[in-house]
Each structure stands twice: as C-alpha cells, then as structure tokens.
C-alpha cells in the first residue's frame, strides 16, 4: 500500500539541500511564469508563490512514475536504484511534465496577479526571493532539513526587502503564517493570503456566472478559517455556489498529501471525493493546486478549475 518511505525522504532531503526544491529539476521552473510580465521587483510587499502551483506538473509526472513502481513488488528497490543513479527513470520522468499542465499553472499565476492588480493591491515580484517554501519537508518530519531551508527562504525574502508577503495557496499560507515563526528565529514578515486581501480591499470580481461546486481545501477550512472569503468572492463574481455533502469545516480531503507515498490510496480518496462533488454539479472550484491535480487525476467527468480563473472570467 505504501512505497519505500525512507528512499523518498532521502530523495527529498538531498534534492532540497542541492537546489532548494525536493525534486531533481531546475529551480527556474518556479519563476519562469513571470517572465515578460514586467512586474516591479522592489517593494515591501512581495508576492510569494511558494512554488506549489509551478511544481504540480512535475509532481504529477513523478506520481505517474511512482504508481507504476507501486504496482510492482520490486518498487522499493527500483526507487532506491533510481535515486542513486539520478538519471534513469525517475529524473527522466519528472523532466518531462505535461506541457499543458505547465501552461495551466502559468495561467493561474497570471490570473492571480491580474486580480491583485485590479483590486488595487500594490506589490512586487522578486524572482530571486520566490522559491519553494519547504512544506513537504515539514510534513514528512524532515525537521532539520526544513529548518535549514526555511532560514534560507527567510534570508532571501529579507534581502529583497520584504515586510509583508502575499501567499496564494493553503499550504504555503499555513507554513509561512504558522510554522515559520516557530522555526525561524526573529521571523518578522507579515503573511497575508490573497483571497483575504481581495476581500479586505472590497474587490468585486466579475466572472462568467453559472453554478459551481466548491471544494474547500483542508488547511483553509480547518487551520486558517478561510471559508467565507472564497464564497463571497465567487458570489460577487456572479456564481451560484453549490455545497457538497461535506463542505466548510467538515470538508473531505482530496487525498493529495500522500500522493508521493501511497499513490493508490491517494487515488481512491480522490475518486470518492470527486464522486461526491459530481453529485452536486460538474463545474468544480478548487483553491489549492494539490486538490486540483489530485481531483483531476480521479477521472470523473468534472470540469475542475482554480478559483482564480473563475474570478477572472477565464473559466
């Protein structure tokens, strides 16, 4: 049911120490979406993406590879070999993500930028201060690797002059707001989630209307209390919101967090949730890149899109 945990942990730890990302890929994948947008690089409010949207296509490619490994009795051994050799299977699989997924993540990030701009938020984007937040390291119990990584992230944010950062997904929001202060001595950066910020600004987005089913991510709903904000924004944008059987604080996880450790279990959970959502409607709103990826993988005939695309009229 579960892959060789130790090998996966080692892979994550080694890669993070090497290039700041828990996967063997070029860190530029995190910032390339902003190229040519002409965003200011200096300012005391920085957009900090945390890299989750950008990494999802690569993680998806990895999961596909792991699913194959999991179905073989020698999966754990192959994983070990792949990690040692670096090149074979593993790195090769990850290096070739689905281009459409990469483009989609860029589209989401640009939509978020547009929303913030339309709401009159002043912010800068400094590619050298953006990067992976280390969420997975923390979740996996790789405390020391995480601590070292978090300190590096904090230092580069400080170097870029950040007093406040805008986060755009539940995992990065959670880790920056609740965990960094605990792990990084003197952490003094204010963290604000973009959905909250849009509401604070009283921004009224405009979308294409229609009925949409909302899937609350666990961390927004239970850890951060971001439940009403997306609903108000969607309603203001002209959507009618359909609540699945389990929603708000009672929401049901998409299964994503264990995708790289127990891909099959993860898929079963996603299928169950996708079925539950489909009982209310076909158009689904997600608020987290992991939910988006995992629910899409479940294979129900759903039209799933990130909230930013609904709010900007692109979905």
């Amino acid at each position: 049911m579960v892959l060789n945990v130790r090998e996966i942990l080692l892979l994550m730890a080694e890669e993070t120490e090497k290039n700041g990302i828990p996967l063997p890929i070029n860190p530029r994948v995190i910032t390339e979406w902003a190229e040519g947008l002409g965003l200011p690089e200096k300012g005391d409010t920085l957009l900090y993406t945390g890299g989750l949207y950008q990494l999802m296509p690569y993680i998806n490619a990895l999961v596909k590879y792991l699913e194959v490994l999991e179905s073989r009795p020698s999966g754990g051994f192959l994983l070990k070999a792949a990690r040692k050799l670096g090149l074979t299977g593993l790195a090769g699989a990850i290096a070739k993500p689905d281009r459409r997924e990469v483009e989609y993540s860029h589209k989401v990030l640009r939509a978020i930028v547009k929303l913030l701009q339309s709401a009159g938020v002043e912010f800068a984007y400094n590619p050298s201060a953006d990067g992976y937040s280390g969420v997975l390291l923390y979740d996996m119990g790789l405390d020391n690797v995480f601590r070292r990584h978090a300190v590096r992230v904090y230092e580069s944010l400080k170097k870029a002059g950040a007093r406040r950062i805008i986060t755009i997904d539940p995992h990065t929001t959670f880790i920056m707001e609740k965990v960094y202060p605990e792990y990084v001595k003197g952490f003094d950066i204010e963290v604000v989630n973009y959905l909250r910020l849009l509401r604070e600004k009283g921004y009224k987005p405009s979308g294409n209307g229609g009925r949409v089913v909302i899937h609350d991510p666990c961390l927004y709903a239970r850890e951060l209390g971001i439940i009403e904000e997306p609903r108000k924004l969607l309603a203001d944008a002209g959507y009618e919101i359909l609540e699945p059987r389990r929603s708000g604080r009672m929401t049901y996880c998409c299964g994503g967090p264990v995708e790289s450790i127990a891909p099959r279990l993860s898929r079963k959970i996603a299928s169950m949730r996708a079925r539950e959502l489909s009982e209310k409607g076909r158009r689904v709103v997600t608020l987290c890149p992991i939910c988006l990826a995992n629910l899409s993988r479940a294979g129900e005939k759903l039209e799933i899109n990130d909230i930013s695309l609904y709010l900007s009229g692109e979905a």
């Binding site: 579960v2 945990v5 239970r222 929401t251 127990a262 279990l265």
Partner: peptide
C-alpha cells in the same frame, strides 16, 4: 514497515480533530 506506513499515509487533514 507497518508502523511507518501508518504514519506516512496520514493526510494531515485534521478531519479527525473535529
């Protein structure tokens, strides 16, 4: 391995906390 699987298959979703 059973114990490790138990710990690493958790989603950290906190549904149980409710």
């Amino acid at each position: 391995s059973d114990v490790v699987e138990s710990m690493y298959s958790c989603l950290l979703c906190k549904a149980c906390h409710l």
